[in-house]
């Protein structure tokens, strides 16, 4: 972990529930109960300055919700988010809050929806600079935007164009340039390459790694692609139905996965090396987050589940530099084994 020491971003007991019940009248007339999605259900994360912390998990497990909570798009139902020692929900003056916001930015998944189609690229990138009053004048603003465009390997003359004149990969570069415009230290990236082709994905991932090194950025990186996560992360958190089931340094997670769900996810990675390894299809479907299973929410799909798993929610236990929330690991029922991967030749 670069820098180590004080935690730059600290998330404690974070919860976010969504009320998805039918309207009050309908509910009363038809005698339906309230329905609440427990999108994020008690999560603790600490991210050190300069590292890339990744969240992985299946669709609907709450990754995007965590991202939105962190940048303040949703207020949390419970829990706290600390950024560089500041409680984000605490009382701040307007200018203090703006100063905090300036230091964190978000990159979105869809390069076609994340840029206002009616705005020129120049204005899209200039918006945060203007909003935070960072530039000293028109010439300075133009110089800043040009520098940002160059930083993401686009041409400053591209500022005059509209988003639809660019390909998906180029648009994602524009999003990155915009996110960098307020000179943030912390970037939340919600599936920044999921909508892109692999060759374009490689360009964007390389760019993100370069920028991180040059600007000492800290990333919260969200993806469902384990190979991408393996490539880019310092540490990885595995989410299942709104909870973190395992957190570990990247190499440890991929070499010695502990939680049964992590192991299962690793088994689903397509085998490009063609060693003849069969992807073992995961049994069962992702349960609904509206009525999550009791105890360990993974128990209906877990081959190691026992009665305790059905009744008691497992706690996150420290192990090998990370944490795991699983009774079988705690009880020593489930041995931890090393995995090997065929090397790309």
């Amino acid at each position: 972990m670069p820098d180590g020491g004080a935690d730059f971003v600290r998330i404690e007991g974070l919860k976010r529930y969504f009320d998805v019940s039918a309207p009050w009248l309908v509910r009363k007339l038809e005698g339906r109960p309230r329905q609440v999605v427990q999108a994020v259900d008690g999560i603790d994360i600490e991210i050190a300055k300069g590292e890339t912390f990744s969240l992985v998990g299946e669709s609907g497990c709450g990754k995007s919700t965590v991202a939105r909570l962190v940048v303040g798009l949703y207020p949390p139902t419970a829990g706290r988010i600390e950024f560089d020692g500041n409680d984000m929900a605490g009382r701040h003056s307007r200018s203090d809050m703006a100063a905090l916001r300036r230091r964190m930015q978000m990159i979105f998944q869809d390069p076609f929806a994340s840029l206002n189609p009616r705005w020129r690229v120049f204005d899209i990138i200039a918006e945060p600079i203007r909003a935070f009053g960072l530039s000293t004048g028109k010439a300075d603003l133009e110089a800043r935007v040009a520098a940002l465009l160059r930083q993401v390997k686009l041409n400053p003359a591209d500022g005059r164009k509209y988003p639809h004149e660019f390909s998906g990969g180029q648009r994602q570069r524009i999003s990155i340039a915009r996110a960098l415009a307020s000179e943030p230290e912390f970037l939340v990236c919600d599936e920044p390459t999921s909508a892109l082709d692999v060759s374009v994905q490689a360009q964007i991932l390389n760019l993100m790694v370069d920028l991180q090194r040059r600007l000492q950025l800290t990333y919260l990186f969200i993806s469902h692609n384990l190979a991408v996560v393996y490539h880019i992360s310092t540490r990885v958190g595995v989410m299942y139905l709104g909870r973190l089931v395992e957190v570990a340094p990247t190499d440890t997670l991929f070499r010695r996965p502990k939680h049964p769900y992590t192991r299962m996810l690793l088994d689903t990675i397509p085998d490009l090396e063609m060693t003849g390894r069969q992807r073992s299809p995961v049994g069962g479907e992702v349960p609904s987050p509206i009525n999550p299973p009791s105890g360990c929410t993974f128990h209906p799909r877990c081959p190691f589940a026992n009665d305790r798993c059905k009744a008691e929610r497992p706690k996150a236990l420290p192990i090998e530099g990370g944490t795991v929330a699983c009774h079988a690991i705690e009880e020593g029922r489930l041995p931890i084994e090393d995995r090997t991967y065929a090397l790309n030749t």
């Binding site: 916001r101 979105f108 929806a113 206002n116 009616r118």
Partner: peptide
């Protein structure tokens, strides 16, 4: 719900500004 509006919210723009600048032209 489009991401460009959320991106504007992330930098703390007021709802009125977002409506006039981003939503209305679209």
């Amino acid at each position: 719900n489009k991401e460009y509006v959320q991106a504007a919210r992330v930098i703390g723009l007021s709802p009125l500004l977002i409506m006039v600048r981003h939503v209305l032209p679209n």
